[in-house]
Design a protein around this nucleic acid. Structure first.
Lengths: 203, 203
DNA sequence: CGAGTGATTTACACTGTGTCAACTAACCCT
DNA sequence: AGGGTTAGTTGACACAGTGTAAATCACTCG
């Protein structure tokens, strides 16, 4: 592979990916490779040289996703949460942060993956990481004894992950126009009631 | 535009829509109009006569959706539910029923709508109906005094709707491999704890 | 210097969409 | 029965976007 950027310029590869990100955000899945090339000030063939084909470009975009995300603060808040309610709130704050940033490409790729195996694999890989994060949270709650006995860790983690997924966030936040705070507040209350022991219901 | 929604023989129209449904299920958004025509035993141009263009065909498919759904039983169960927990369970049963049937086109159209205004409007219209159904459920719960005072009817209805949306269902049911019963059982418990008053927590 | 390589330009084959015009087969009607 | 409308067919074509290929340029490094 060509892992070395030679010329003094910022790596062409990254320029192309940035251009792709922008155009996916602006035009959705209907982006043209010629537009990508133009936006990156590069020839259309350079795109093919770097990514092989359309699908390869989108896969690379998904893999490149994490590099452009800025979630350190929100993530730290989750890890330092003193109790269950605080942890859930931090998790929902992280969630809304995450989807806000990923929104442009999530809208497109979450669905394009059905027509493209490679893209599907790449996307699932990213989501697997997400799944693990929520799983870890529920583990924490369980070892602290804050998870209600009604719940197995597996079910609670899966449900939390699924409920925090893109559709739910998008419907509430974008379609119904909820603010970030309203999303975080309502979902936190929702999850706290559903998952935690009774003693924790005071806020 | 043209939108000759009543071009000719309704049976031809329906044959084309059925073929489209099948092909969307088989091939996703990448279906070719020539394949649709072939499947419907019709010339490619007939498709254009009836639906104007590709987008018109997909919009018609969404509008045609309700005609092919078979939800009478599940819907009746919701309307005759004696109490809150039963109502939520019936609702989740209806939900899994609904998404199972709509799955083939939901996967594709939920996302294609971003690139196609007309399709987006049609899809949103269908989902608005769904929203109303969940709203009615929460109204019922509220007037029966079973909705916890923590919740406004608006927030509860919106949250219920969003949590029952496609992504959540798909992640749990398809990606994580939950059975229908496990989905219904877990989600019902989840929602019961989150939305209903304490007295109802016995199952 | 020359070798290597990233990138450019130009050209072309292929596929799918959308449009158009001419033809056909049915049905309807006084 | 013949004339007009309706529904559909056939075949051709323009257009756009993807993907491939070959010749060439430009810059770097040994």
């Amino acid at each position: 592979m060509s892992t070395d950027r030679s010329y003094g310029d910022p790596s062409t590869r990254v320029r192309i990916l940035d251009a792709t990100w922008q155009l996916v955000a602006e035009q959705g899945a209907g982006l043209k490779l010629s537009d990508v090339a133009a936006r990156a000030s590069v020839s259309r063939q350079a795109v093919y040289l770097h990514f092989g084909d359309r699908s390869g470009l989108l896969v690379a975009l998904v893999q490149h996703m994490d590099d452009t995300l800025d979630l350190a603060e929100s993530l730290a808040a989750v890890n330092t949460a003193p109790d269950g309610p605080a942890l859930l709130e931090a998790a929902m704050r992280l969630n809304t942060e995450f989807w806000s940033q990923v929104l442009p490409i999530a809208q497109v790729l979450e669905a394009a993956r059905h027509d493209d195996d490679a893209l599907g694999t790449a996307w699932r890989d990213r989501m697997g990481f997400r799944q693990a994060v929520f799983r870890a949270m529920v583990d924490t709650l369980a070892t602290r004894g804050e998870l209600d006995e009604d719940w197995s860790v597996d079910d609670a983690a899966a449900t939390l992950y699924a409920v925090a997924h893109f559709d739910t966030w998008r419907e509430l936040r974008l379609e119904l126009g909820w603010s970030n705070d309203h999303y975080v507040g309502t979902m936190t209350r929702f999850l706290r009631r559903a998952l935690l022991k009774e003693g924790d219901t005071n806020r």
